[in-house]
Amino acid sequence: MIKDITLGQYFPGNSVVHRMDARFKLVITMLFIVMLFIGSNTISLEVGFVFTAMAYLCSSIPVKLIAKSLKPILPILAFTTILNLFMITSGMPLFQWKFIAITDEAVETSVFMIVRILLLIAGTSLLTYTTSPVALTDAIERLLSPLKRFKLPVSELAMMMTIALRFIPTLIEETDKIMSAQKARGADMDGGKIKDKVKAVIPIIIPLFVSAVRRAGELATAMECRCYRGGEGRTRMRQLKSGAADYVSLGITIFFLAAVIFINAID
């Protein structure tokens, strides 16, 4: 059900990865994405795999969780695989039936894409698994803070993100509750034609909006009561601190990235 969504969920822990500075984790994740996308051959992808595996080993996140986070992207995987298999026509045909042909190159590319997407999701999920949303927005705020010079309201944007993230579980819970309440009044959620399905959404959406607006009002009042007046001059209770582990990890990441670039160059 709705509660099974793990993408973007934080799993508290005390591993090296958990304790790392969120800013570094964010930068490392970005470098990791670059690493995956510039890698154009199998060896560079293997490097990416080794990197992801190392990161997971250091994070003490159970393997089962990775599988769970990969489940929602299965449709995307299936879609890209089908496209790749049938659209790529260069290379040796392995299989032919009328006008449909599958070539060795198509198979190779499909497998390559599957592994790349899996690594991408697994690697980036690690960031949100090991970093609390608050630390993450803090990191974003700090990394974007040079943009304040261009009058970009970085603190406000960060606060908005924090609030949005904070209310995702609340709203999910609320949706669950409203759905149960309407079901108790005989609302039919899972049967019927498309028209009935659309109709069935109204009794859920309206109370959900009403309560979201109400919550927003209450939150604004509560923030004003605690003298919130924008990010100007605001200090924070938890300072982001970088240590040796952060610089070492960043160094390792850059080393891996350099390796991929090198492999690409000699290929």
Partner: peptide, 13 residues
Amino acid sequence: VGLVFQYPEYQIF
């Protein structure tokens, strides 16, 4: 079996 939830006013639509 009719069930009235806690704070049932939030289900009004």
